[in-house]
Simulated assay, not measured.
Amino acid sequence: MATSAVARETVFALRRQIAKIEGTLSERLEAPAGSSFDADVPRQSLASSRNPTPARNLTIVRRGLAAPPDAFLRTGAERLDAALSGGLPKAALSEFHGAATRDAGAVAGFVLSLISLILSQGPRLPVLWIGTSEVFREAGFPYAGGLHAFFGIEPEQLLFSEAPRLLDALWVAEEAARMTALAAVILEIRGNPQRLDLTATRRLHARAQSAGRPLFLLRQAGEPEPTAAPVRLILSAAPAAARETIAGPLAGSIGRPAFTITIGKSRTALPGKFTLEWNPDERIFEERRGEEWAKNPVPVVSTSRRREDPAAAPGAVLAFPAVGSPAAGDQSPRPERPAHRRPRRAGRSA
């Protein structure tokens, strides 16, 4: 029994190393039928061309066949889909991280965009959103009017399950992940709870694979940690461009929702950072390129004082300097003494 366990761990270690070198997942390595190990341990017996007797103790790990194109959910952004080796897996656990609590809205908006793509490509089944009371109290619920206007999702298609504890939410997610009557399952958590460890995510990933449905794990203010999810995306809100009109960009307006996406983990192990805009009319993602964004830049932070402005300031130039920025040649004002060091006025008693 001990020898079998050691051999098993050796095969697992070799599989991980070869998958890392080839830039794929170890789960995608092909396993032959009738293996003495578990079905998820890929190996192939070798037979020497000189010796017809097969080598019983020698095994190798080889790369499996590519997954069919319909196994992935394509976002429509070619560069992002290529970096993800075809898109997000449809039958798997996928992670979406927000570095801070304020990014919960951006994470939820991006996942709802993916749900809109799923419903447009298949049967319009309901979607279950699971979370704890703490999560919904902190981030709130999606607005029913916005679901239809921005994503084409009817309010009755999005079901919510509010659990008092994380343990209850995980139980509901495991039971829902195996159901084929749902188009997708969303599990939203906060931070890095100990109960959501590698074993728990393996169970969720296995249930999603068995049902052939996606399971999206949303993490508010969580740090990356080892999980069974093949893909991890780190999301935040990007500055919105001006709204496009027939006469051109409308100054001072807010355009389409935009997301900054960083690949934290993928099947190809290729890092990348992308900015996508969600087109609510066409219900597709459009990548924002650098040249297009440079036509309408939006300053995020004002220029520091007493430093040369890298760009000409818009508007009329005033004849007097700005407040707090003395003109050249003027002496800086005399520093004022702190209040507790001022001399007492004459005639006042101590």
Rank of each mutant, 00 (worst) to 15 (best):
L167V: 12
L147P: 06
R195G: 15
G87C: 09
A67H: 12
I189D: 03
I130W: 00
L73S: 02
A177C: 10
I186E: 06
R178W: 11
T75L: 05
P155L: 09
P68Q: 08
R190F: 08
D168Y: 00
R137C: 11
D197F: 07
S113F: 05
N192G: 04
L112I: 06
H205I: 03
T180G: 12
F160D: 10
P69S: 10
F110K: 00
A82N: 14
W129R: 06
A100Q: 14
E156R: 10
A208Y: 06
A163L: 05
G98V: 02
G212A: 09
A181D: 15
F96H: 00
H97C: 08
Q194W: 14
P142Q: 08
A139E: 03
V107Y: 01
A181W: 13
F136E: 00
H148L: 14
A200T: 09
R79I: 13
R203M: 06
V185Y: 01
A139G: 05
R203D: 02
V107T: 02
L196G: 02
L196Y: 06
R202T: 10
P69E: 13
S113D: 09
I115V: 14
R213Q: 12
Q209E: 15
W171F: 14
E95W: 06
D81G: 11
E95M: 00
T180Q: 14
L114E: 01
F96M: 09
W171T: 07
P155D: 02
H97D: 10
Q194L: 15
S94A: 10
L159R: 07
G146R: 08
A211W: 05
K90Y: 10
I153M: 03
G140A: 07
P155N: 09
L182C: 11
